[in-house]
Design a protein around this nucleic acid. Sequence first.
DNA 1: TTAAAACGGTAACATATGTCACATATTGAT
DNA 2: ATCAATATGTGACATATGTTACCGTTTTAA
Lengths: 206, 206
Amino acid sequence: MDLNKLLEFKYTPEINEKLVDYGFTKTFAEGDIILNENAYIKAIPIVMSGSIRVMRTDDDDREILLYYIKAGESCIMSFLGGIHQDTSKVKAIAEEATEILFIPIDKVNLLIKDYPEWLDYIFRLYHKRFEELLDVVNAIAFKKLDERLLDFIKKKCSINNNKTLIITHESIANELGTARVVVSRLLKQMEQEGLVVLGRNKIILN
Amino acid sequence: MDLNKLLEFKYTPEINEKLVDYGFTKTFAEGDIILNENAYIKAIPIVMSGSIRVMRTDDDDREILLYYIKAGESCIMSFLGGIHQDTSKVKAIAEEATEILFIPIDKVNLLIKDYPEWLDYIFRLYHKRFEELLDVVNAIAFKKLDERLLDFIKKKCSINNNKTLIITHESIANELGTARVVVSRLLKQMEQEGLVVLGRNKIILN
DNA sequence: TTAAAACGGTAACATATGTCACATATTGAT
DNA sequence: ATCAATATGTGACATATGTTACCGTTTTAA
């Protein structure tokens, strides 16, 4: 396994070797729950292929999408949670078939000590997540649902590099933290405006 | 200057000395803008006394409160921004008279290399901010304004350790990202329910 | 002292979103 | 083919929040 192209930090063969050596790989199918809220964290995950979506859930089962984790990235919340022996505050779900390399927490600390690039990688990811979270705050606080919905569709499409989304109104509603009827209503509107074409389980972006 | 009690990581005289040595101190009055959005970051701030509030602003001047930074804590966004030569995505304002120790970015990197406790301090703060941000997402996404308003008042009170808040409806509205009339309306309601007592520039929590 | 500015109260209304109820269409299982 | 489950469409209505307008009161500045 060669992490060179995946991870964004400067490659050294040693780090690669160490990571593969220390870690273990697991695969997940679409929809599998990788990390549950309040679960204890013993290893931090690096996405090797596929992608993950990270959700925040409310007390009464309402959820909202925070961000996606793509190949080469790590769930940085797990990382910090792991370091501080904390439980997870978020839920992670496989968006598609996904392969994950888990690095046990104690090994992570070893790596930090020995390889500054590794630390830099972690900081960079942290920064990225933080900004994405700020964007979420912005969206919920200041944007209306129709705009958020359109953004959502576009983002999903860009992940698959595809104009056609296979998804139900129901699950869109869940990810945006609203109700199914609301999504249906807005989508119908968008269809009339010519922004999308709708079908059962299907949305085509124009 | 002794940072022992302020910073939460294990104290060593060397770190203390280095920090004071590398850094420079500035003082701010209530309402002073410490960091503006899109400003370049050349040093990371550690709050020695007083407190700061960090806001996210929209394109059209709407703002929303993210979190407070209290004595002993650092604005971690600045930290990451600084490391990656980025501009700030947030705005920081002095809540009260505040004294800040600025550590230049290059020195920060030196310290990380030499003192693992310092790195741990940074990670811990990061974790804290991240979770606070998650709470903000939760609040905006799932809570109604009256609840957020009450939470806001309680939090402000707890900072000053005081049941009386000196603040205008206008500025509350700004921090919550809503309009003045809305805040006035809800406050009046809360007063009728016996939750608070209102006065000009004043809210007393029962 | 007087004018201007800041602060808060309130009504009326607009709009976005949530909720309920029910209809229809599509799919899948038996 | 039939039935059940799932996905969607739609109307009617409730509610939360945003907006505008205008008022009186208090504070501040000239």
